[in-house]
Design a protein around this nucleic acid. Structure first.
Lengths: 244, 244
DNA sequence: CCAAAAGTGTTTCGTATACACCCATGT
DNA sequence: ACATGGGTGTATACGAAACACTTTTGG
């Protein structure tokens, strides 16, 4: 097993989740304790690739091994290659111990991924995998250059959000207009006018209203909408933003 | 020399140049003839990285070695990692011969770069380096997955052009409004209305008119403009396109 | 009947688009 | 004087932004 790793190349994943009340979150895992050291530090889910693997395969495998998450949207957004990026001696020692490989310089290919947060509950993740969701602006110090990778991933995701229909990866199949708006606000980092938002979305033509409403809520039940990917793909492609 | 290469990782560069009359071009190099085979095929400038090099350093080094071009804008846009990407037996044999390394699977990190074409003339490049400019839509078959890398690079560059001030890397310091428009059209792939274009550019506030005009042209001499990067950086960042 | 979130219209302003002719220079 | 590319103005339409109240449900 250890022998089939490629000691030069790794993958790391910035996993975004969205929760209607908690906003945008990121999944971090605790580096295992080792030897007699009790230093538990946080990191992005990631690992060395296996020799003949596609990078996306690697990212999928690593995510499943480390968090149980599988079959999610994955997008390569950059390579982190600073020859000194694994500089912390303690972190390197941990990595060598963990992989049984004399790792020296590792280039990492970074992916961001989007998951519907409800499917991967806090308790389950932390019990089985030692993984936890953190709010994007409450992320503590991570090992290696993982804070750097994370902020680059956030920026890349924000940029793509403007032109690609990413947000439906973070929402349930049927969603309300306000869910879409709150997600957009969480990603953009500022608030949008509700009336203007609805007008714009309705004009797009590929976010379809359903004849179906929320049930059992103690306020006016919201209408559900669905994303019509065919209509999106067939729209006359203009050089305009996706949401704003 | 050969021993210091990293046999797992390479860089490849999609080098764009712009010429007022010829439009958008791409720099390709002839794979050297070798042994008794006369198969000269085209490729992107690229090579394996050296062990402790930054990837951007590698790209710069490779470009200088293969084309003499140095100190230009370089932007990482993707990693090409298909385990079978070096499938052609002839191409692999050539690569092994050329590098003296038993290369198996190579992951390549791709950069696109932008140069002012006038500085690197056809004749000089082909005489000293066996490199030639090709129009973007007249590119022949390349080795490995280089056509794929090229088209991805073109798409990435087009996308970034919309939000980043890339075009000034392709223009002389002082340029005319029509040069800017023709470049924009070459990148976008469609034509723009000249009057509306001028209005938009003038409203931007960071493309400054000079009190200086063309000389010696047999028509009304055009005014020169310059890009003011400070004003660009200080502008209130809006979620709008850069040119359109 | 109260709390809570959903949903709705109008006005104002700025930018996008469409479109045709005169200008300055060299030969 | 003519050929060549440079440079200009106006009218219309559409989308962006600002802004406050009514509706529907469960408790």
């Amino acid at each position: 097993m250890a022998l089939s790793f490629n000691p030069h190349i790794s993958v790391d994943c910035v996993v975004f989740g969205f929760d209607d009340t908690e906003g945008l979150k990121i999944l971090l895992i605790n580096r295992d304790e080792w030897d007699n050291q009790k230093t538990t530090r946080l990191k992005l889910p990631g690992n060395l690739i296996i020799m003949k693997e596609h990078l996306k395969q690697s990212a999928n495998r690593v995510l499943q091994e480390l968090t149980g998450i599988k079959d999610i949207y994955l997008k390569q957004f950059g390579v982190f290659d600073n020859p000194g990026r694994l500089m912390n001696g303690d972190d390197i020692a941990w990595l060598r111990k963990k992989t049984n490989i004399y790792v020296e310089r590792v280039i990492t290919v970074a992916f961001y991924s989007l998951v519907k947060l409800g499917q991967y509950l806090e308790t389950e993740l932390s019990r089985a995998y030692n993984a936890t969701w953190y709010k994007v602006n409450e992320v503590p110090g991570l090992i290696f250059d993982h804070n750097d990778i994370l902020s680059n991933g956030l920026e890349a995701m924000r940029k793509e959000f403007l032109t690609e229909p990413l947000c439906f990866e973070l929402l349930p199949k049927k969603f309300t207009m306000n869910q879409l708006q709150h997600l957009s606000e969480a990603i953009l980092g500022f608030n949008l006018d509700n009336r203007n938002f609805r007008k714009r979305i309705n004009r797009l033509g590929y976010i379809m209203p359903l004849n179906e409403h929320q049930r059992g809520v103690s306020h006016k039940p919201a209408r559900y909408y669905m994303f019509d990917r065919k209509k999106f793909d067939n729209r006359k492609k203009e050089y305009t933003g996706f949401i704003i």
